[in-house]
Amino acid sequence: ASAKTVKLEVQSAWPLTLPASGRDAEHFAGVVKTASEGSIDIKLYSAGKLVPALQIFDAVQNGSLDAGYTSPLYVAGRFPAVQLFGGVPFGPGAVEYLGWLYNGGGLEIWREIYAKQGVVPVPCGLMDAEAGGWYKSEITGLDSIAGKKFRFAGLAGEVMKKLGASVVLLGGGDIYPNLERGVIDGTEFSMPAIDKAMGFEKVAKNYYLPGWHQPAAINELIINKAKWDSMSEAQHAVIETACRETMLWGVTSTEVENAEAIEGFKAAGVTIRQFPPELLEKFKAATGEVMAEQSAKNADFKRVWESLSAYRAKAGAWAAVTK
């Protein structure tokens, strides 16, 4: 049935030119426009144009904004459980993550948590492993972590603290000058294609791949519930399908760029390294403790963590083979 035209205003949390996240938003908008034959009149705003990234959820929730394209990690202060949908230290890889969301009950819990707020989430962007970060000196073991200063966000930051590092909060633009002058000894940031635009290779010569703190990441499209209900089922289907397609498009769109960025770092004198396995074991153990602590503090967190862990226990034997 042909639906009446709906206007959908979407605020992105990232500049639309940003590899992965930002470009995924633009790709999604393009697909929706075409696939809906214009019945969804989507208008996409680049980062900060209407609402700052950390406030997108509130704006969608109170209906001043129809929808937002953002990361579940940004609402960790409001809904600690939801960050497990955005990216998890030692969490699942990209395909396993989707398996849990779509076929393992993850998305249902996610929808339930947001439904209480009058918000509908649609998983809408997928990235595989982030880089492990930039370090002033080589990471040889626990000694290279304890007593050092790092910029690390979210749950991974807690893990670093457990191992004796001091964790520093810095905005995106403050990282470079502080890394340059040694206020911090290292930082995680993003994937190579994005890290490239920060110029970290000039001030830190050790680049670690891959990142244990986020083996895969998922972004969300969040839509105000009243707005969602005003759309037809066909329009819902267009949005959900466009989001699934955006995941595929997004996760494959950066492979070459990431590889080229790494070559560029090497040419700039950066050594590409991997974390020592013994240290990774320590990170992993600390991650377990952090997850237990967070689960004790928040019932939703516990529920999501248990659902994810149960799925991984069931699918693990196969996921390990296909990885």
């Binding site: 950390l54 509130d58 929730q61 109170n62 990690l73 940004y74 609402v75 960790a76 202060g77 409001r78 809904f79 600690p80 966000a153 979210g154 749950l155 930051g157 807690e158 603290k161 964790v167 909060l169 952090v290 967070q294």
Partner: peptide, 14 residues
């Protein structure tokens, strides 16, 4: 709204 949610920092130890 923030009060209703018991909102804290997005950083776990914030």
């Amino acid at each position: 709204y923030s009060w209703q949610l018991g909102e804290g920092s997005p950083m776990p130890s914030g």
